[in-house]
Design a protein around this nucleic acid. Structure first.
Length: 504
DNA sequence: GTTAGGG
DNA sequence: CCCTAAC
């Protein structure tokens, strides 16, 4: 055990890769670039000038002696190739390279170049890395979901302090967006430079043996010292201005990426690979060539198609939407359940003070408009049965997109119940007209659906009561007994279509 | 246009 | 909440 712990990231001289840059047109996988790792000693890192060694056409400032292929672990690397400046892994990995992206799934092909000291070094590892198998990877990634953004930044700041994970870069470029992919300058994974004293933010291979860097937001030819892998956004055009470069760890997959020397990262935090939408949103609209458009699932109607288009269009245009989608923190207001406003429904059992909680529900995605919430402040309620009903902003839904989820408020539920008791089940339009005329977002169909859900809830509650008492195995939010009881009553009085009312 | 019901 | 068949 070395002194990794002190400065986890870069204390170690070497970084392990289990992915390599690949020329997809080649039958072999060749190293196009690599990482050099020294936090405070950039001079120690490779210099273009004194490079005896070439990797896939890229020069590295490292002495040959510094490369120590582990015996038996480098079956595919021939010394002669290294000497000749060619480092190729002949593992038939080309299949992985169709997308110019090596996902590092070549676990069997243990290849390691070990460099133990001094100037920079490359360690390519693909074999049985200790931390490779992570049964809990998925769970971990899910747990860290909400903090994904933060962690991404963190990863950036800490440079190569990435353990056993894949890095994916998110690159946003400005510049000539009209260029076709054919003119694409780079079609290789890129590297991102971290913690440089200079304003170098990224480096990548141009595919011709040159290692380019992004300095001061512009692509230039300069050899950086410290880079992290950037497996995505492989299409960079000359002259493009890089305005954003972010990294995240792919937590959805189990293969390894960079293995840093971090002890602190032992927990192996994994970040979920951002959804395509996330990537799209991070990119400037101009950089269409960088982030390919999303595929639209075949709609089955013209309306749907137009809706989707409208939605997409809206998405691109609406910054608010973007930030809203990215904002993991929303405001949730729990609306307590209470007795029906207009009737005598009595609250059974304990009636405790109203509770209005903020931020207690992770469900909520956006900040609701408070005015849309109906808070029954005067309504007493059962503590254990407080309603989680949360209203979510639902405006701006005029673009055909799926309506924002607007949770039913207690008042609405009560209104619905009243409506049913008044007009009977099935008169949704009537109920809507009479009782929900003010709430534009509730359609007769919504009322019908809600009633159906209420029925299910009440039935389930009854069932669970029959079985085990205390145990509440309801999948949905608990509803106040007072409400459910009324639903039950009404369901008895006004039979709902078909077998749905399998109770009574 | 409404409603029922499946997804 | 969406979609669609049936009315």
């Amino acid at each position: 055990m070395e002194d990794h712990s002190a400065i986890p990231v870069l204390e170690d001289e070497a970084i392990q890769f289990d992915f390599l840059l690949v020329d997809p047109q080649d039958d072999h996988v060749s190293v196009d670039a690599f990482l050099c790792i020294h936090r405070n000693n950039s001079e120690k890192c490779m210099q273009m000038d004194d490079i005896p060694c070439k990797f896939g056409g890229i020069n590295f400032g490292t002495d040959r002696e510094q490369l120590h292929p582990k015996a038996g672990e480098v079956p595919d690397i021939k010394a002669s190739e290294i000497e000749a400046g060619e480092f190729e892994i002949l593992n038939g990995l080309s299949s992985f390279c169709e997308d110019y992206l090596l996902d590092g799934e070549y676990e069997e092909n243990g290849t390691e170049l070990n460099h133990d000291s001094g100037a920079g070094l490359l360690k390519v590892v693909s074999g049985n890395n200790n931390q490779t198998d992570r049964p809990g990877a998925n769970e971990t990634s899910q747990k860290s979901d909400s903090s994904a953004t933060t962690d991404q930044v963190d990863v950036c700041q800490r440079g190569l302090n990435v353990n056993d994970s894949d890095l994916h870069g998110i690159f946003s470029c400005t510049g000539d967006s009209e260029k076709s992919l054919d003119n694409c300058w780079f079609q290789y994974p890129t590297f991102t430079v971290e913690n440089m004293e200079e304003d170098v933010s990224s480096v990548f291979s141009d595919g011709n043996g040159r290692l380019m860097s992004v300095k001061s937001g512009l692509i230039s030819e300069q050899l950086p010292c410290r880079v992290t892998a950037n497996l995505e956004n492989r299409h960079i055009f000359p002259g493009q201005e890089v305005i954003e470069s972010r990294l995240h760890i792919d937590g959805a997959q189990t293969h390894r990426g960079i293995q840093g020397c971090s002890a602190e990262n032992h927990e192996e935090k994994r970040l979920r690979k951002p959804p395509k939408r996330f990537i799209d949103e991070l990119s400037e609209p101009k950089s269409k060539s960088v982030c390919k458009k999303r595929e639209v699932s075949a709609p089955n109607s013209k309306d749907k198609l137009s809706n989707v288009k409208a939605a997409k269009h809206h998405y691109k245009k609406s910054k608010a939407e973007v930030s809203f989608a990215e904002d993991p923190i929303g405001i949730a207001i729990q609306v307590p359940f209470g007795p029906l406003e207009q009737n005598e429904s009595k609250v059974e059992e304990d009636s405790s003070p109203v509770k209005v909680k903020l931020d207690s529900q992770p469900l909520v995605v956006s900040s609701p408009k408070l005015k849309d919430l109906e808070l029954d402040r005067e309504a007493p309620m059962s503590e254990s049965e407080e309603d989680n009903t949360t209203a979510v902003k639902s405006e701006e839904d005029g673009f055909g997109r799926r309506k924002h989820h607007v949770l039913w408020t207690v008042s609405e539920v009560k209104m619905l119940i009243d409506g049913v008791s008044q007009y009977g089940v099935g008169r949704w339009s009537r109920i809507k007209k009479d009782l929900f005329s003010s709430s534009a977002h509730r359609t007769p169909v919504d009322l019908k659906d809600k009633w159906r859900n209420l029925l299910k809830a009440s039935r389930a509650q009854r069932d669970s009561k029959k079985g085990e008492d205390g145990k509440r195995n309801l999948a949905w939010r608990p509803l106040p007994k007072s409400i459910l009881r009324r639903v039950n009553e009404l369901a008895t009085i006004h039979p709902y279509p078909r077998d749905l009312r399998s109770k009574c």
